[in-house]
């Protein structure tokens, strides 16, 4: 498991995080979870994951600010970012993608769809 891809989950909603952590680990990824934007910034300063699964609405620093930081920092720019938001609508999706997200999912979503997107972005085959 030493070569497992690293994912940082930034999600303040504990129960959603619970399910997502379970599903992502089941796919064989190495996962860290933080619950606030500020913790996410700290985690990104310390580590460089392969993918960030990023909620938009977070306490403190917003998901868009974290995305701006990732895309504006040379060391982090290559990280894949999958944004998730409960604010629906085409314009929110356009905003996320325009600011540099690789994919955007509107909550609620099918968990199988989420894991497929993660595997697709990281170029790994999906497991069951």
């Amino acid at each position: 498991m030493g070569s497992a891809k690293k994912i940082l989950l930034v999600e303040d909603e504990d129960n959603i995080a619970l399910a997502l952590e379970f599903l992502i680990r089941r796919q064989g990824f190495d996962l860290d979870r933080v619950a606030t934007g500020t913790d996410a910034v700290t985690a990104l300063e310390r580590d460089c994951p392969d993918l960030v699964l990023l909620d938009v609405m977070l306490p403190g620093v917003s998901g868009y600010e974290i995305l701006q930081m990732i895309r504006g920092t040379d060391r982090l720019r290559h990280i894949k970012v999958l944004m998730m938001s409960a604010s629906g609508g085409e314009i929110a999706r356009r905003k996320g993608l325009a600011m540099g997200a690789d994919a955007y999912l509107t909550k609620p979503f099918e968990t199988s769809h989420l894991t497929a997107q993660i595997c697709d972005l990281l170029g790994t085959p999906a497991h069951g």
């Binding site: 868009y64 504006g72 609508g89 314009i91 929110a92 905003k95 325009a98 600011m99 540099g100």
Partner: peptide, 8 residues
Amino acid sequence: RTDIWVTS
């Protein structure tokens, strides 16, 4: 029904 964003 819109939003505003920043790109660079």
